Simulated assay, not measured.
Amino acid sequence: MTQLPRPKMLRPLLSAVLLGAACLAASPARADGPESVRVMSFNLWHGGDAGKQPLDATVEVIRRSRADVVGLQETGGTAPKGEERPDRAAEIAERLGWHYLDQGGRTGVISRFPIVAATPRKWGAKLALPSGRLMYAFNVHLAHAPYQPYQLLRIPYADGAFLGTADEAVRAAREARGGQVAEMLAEVAAVAAEGLPMVVTGDFNEPSHRDWTDAAASAGIHPLRVEWPSTLAVEAAGFVDAYREVHPDPLASPGVTWTPITRPDDPKDHHDRIDFVLATPNVQVKSAEIVGESREAADIVVTPYPSDHRAVVAELLFPEVAPSTPGE
Results as ranks from 00 to 15, higher is better:
residue 101 L to Y: 10
residue 41 S to V: 07
residue 62 I to L: 14
residue 216 A to V: 07
residue 319 P to N: 07
residue 316 L to N: 11
residue 224 L to K: 14
residue 55 L to Q: 09
residue 29 A to Q: 15
residue 128 A to H: 10
residue 22 A to C: 02
residue 15 S to P: 00
residue 197 P to Y: 08
residue 160 G to V: 08
residue 129 L to W: 10
residue 48 G to Y: 04
residue 251 L to V: 00
residue 145 A to F: 13
residue 129 L to N: 10
residue 267 P to H: 12
residue 128 A to C: 05
residue 212 W to N: 00
residue 246 V to M: 05
residue 279 A to S: 14
residue 317 L to K: 12
residue 261 I to T: 15
residue 301 V to S: 08
residue 73 Q to V: 03
residue 46 H to W: 11
residue 200 V to K: 03
residue 59 V to M: 06
residue 226 V to K: 03
residue 33 G to D: 14
residue 133 R to Q: 09
residue 252 A to S: 08
residue 83 E to D: 10
residue 229 P to S: 10
residue 86 P to Y: 08
residue 251 L to M: 04
residue 183 E to C: 10
residue 245 E to H: 13
residue 170 V to R: 14
residue 307 S to V: 03
residue 277 V to N: 02
residue 245 E to Q: 14
residue 12 P to G: 02
residue 228 W to K: 01
residue 165 T to E: 00
residue 288 A to Y: 11
residue 309 H to N: 00
residue 95 R to M: 05
residue 279 A to L: 07
residue 60 E to Y: 00
residue 296 E to M: 09
residue 80 P to M: 03
residue 256 V to G: 00
residue 279 A to D: 04
residue 258 W to L: 14
residue 267 P to Y: 12
residue 309 H to F: 03
residue 264 P to I: 11
residue 63 R to Q: 15
residue 254 P to R: 08
residue 103 Q to Y: 11
residue 187 E to Y: 09
residue 52 K to F: 07
residue 38 R to P: 04
residue 79 A to G: 08
residue 37 V to N: 12
residue 192 A to G: 05
residue 246 V to K: 12
residue 282 N to L: 06
residue 195 G to A: 03
residue 136 Y to C: 02
residue 149 P to T: 01
residue 247 H to F: 13
residue 9 M to N: 01
residue 233 A to W: 12
residue 294 S to V: 09
residue 24 L to Y: 02
residue 209 H to S: 01
residue 87 D to I: 04
residue 233 A to D: 10
residue 93 A to P: 12
residue 313 V to D: 11
residue 41 S to N: 07
residue 16 A to V: 00
residue 321 V to N: 02
residue 282 N to E: 12
residue 83 E to P: 00
residue 47 G to V: 06
residue 179 G to Q: 13
residue 96 L to E: 02
residue 56 D to S: 15
residue 16 A to G: 13
residue 24 L to P: 00
residue 90 A to I: 00
residue 59 V to K: 04
residue 126 K to W: 03
residue 139 N to H: 11
residue 297 A to S: 15
residue 123 W to G: 02
residue 235 E to H: 01
residue 60 E to T: 09
residue 53 Q to K: 13
residue 7 P to R: 06
residue 160 G to W: 08
